[in-house]
């Protein structure tokens, strides 16, 4: 009785898992960046682990159904089979190589940002995001965490390069189809830059700079979340990301006041 029930539950579990996956109701949000490769890796991993999941659970279900204790049944005696063990290890190793191998190449791409990217700085603090764009010179001015005592974003305002930088606290505007390097800084505690649609994610660590990169490939508005616990209002540390055409982006950027205009020396 228990055996049949357990077998049924396990089969239902497998069916449920497969149906749930196939239905796509609980799957990644629509991709809006260049990281299709990450999605592919998730799919590869899902297929490899999915096969293992289905096969192992069905075997378990079969076992509890077929070999549940019945009158006159006696267990077989076998304790070892080196050949079988070795083959299973080889199959597992193969599955792992298939899964990890390509992933490492994608990761390599992930940590080597392209040269021509637009560098934007994102500053996290309890509990909001600020963004800094390089101005007309295309360069971001020097920062130093010690300068948070002087201005809210810790910029060196004596640096000539910093003068035309643009600091905004509102939504993060990004141009379409251009590689973006996000330089992450934090003012106080750990935060994490996370836009589900972009897939990329990276912690912001106080006292240093971390980086991630992506190319937005869809226009629209997305949620920017904090994915690293950062205190009481962690769940409300949000902003918006607006991806727009390069022209619109330029127009918007021109309209913003520069550091020279906003921060007094």
């Amino acid at each position: 009785m228990q055996g049949i029930l357990l077998a049924i539950v396990l089969v239902l579990l497998v069916i449920g898992a497969v149906v749930l996956t196939m239905s796509g109701a609980l799957w990644l949000p629509t991709l809006a960046s260049n990281w299709g490769a990450i999605d592919n890796m998730l799919v590869i991993t899902l297929i490899v682990t999915g096969i293992a999941f289905v096969v192992l659970n069905l075997i378990l279900a079969y076992i509890v159904f077929r070999y549940r204790a019945r009158d006159g049944q006696k267990a077989a005696f076998f304790a070892e089979n080196h050949r079988l063990e070795r083959n299973l290890i080889l199959v597992t190793a193969l599955g792992i190589i298939v899964m990890l191998g390509p992933g490492l190449f994608v990761y390599s791409e992930f940590i080597h940002p392209p040269q021509n990217a637009l560098v934007i700085e994102v500053l996290g603090q309890q509990w909001r995001w600020s963004f800094r764009y390089p101005g007309t010179d295309g360069k971001l001015g020097r920062t130093d965490p010690k300068l948070f005592a002087q201005n809210a974003v810790g910029i060196d305002i004596t640096d000539p390069v910093a003068q035309d930088d643009v600091v905004v606290h509102g939504p993060l505007h990004l141009p379409l189809n251009r590689p973006i390097i996000i330089k992450l800084r934090s003012k106080d505690v750990l935060h994490s830059f996370y836009v589900p649609e972009f897939r990329a994610k990276m912690d912001a660590v106080p006292g240093m700079v971390t980086r991630l990169w992506f190319t937005p490939t869809k226009t629209g508005t997305f949620d920017l979340l904090c994915a690293e616990l950062c205190g009481t209002a962690h769940f409300q540390m949000r902003s918006k990301v607006i991806v727009e055409s390069p022209e619109e982006f330029e127009r918007w950027l021109q309209a913003q006041p520069t550091v020279a205009q906003t921060i007094k020396k």
């Binding site: 020097r142 920062t143 130093d144 330089k183 006292g207 240093m208 700079v209």
Partner: peptide, 12 residues
């Protein structure tokens, strides 16, 4: 690595 990052990005 952290020392290098600080040197590289903060310059001091």
């Amino acid at each position: 690595y952290v020392a290098w990052v600080r040197q590289f990005f903060f310059g001091s």
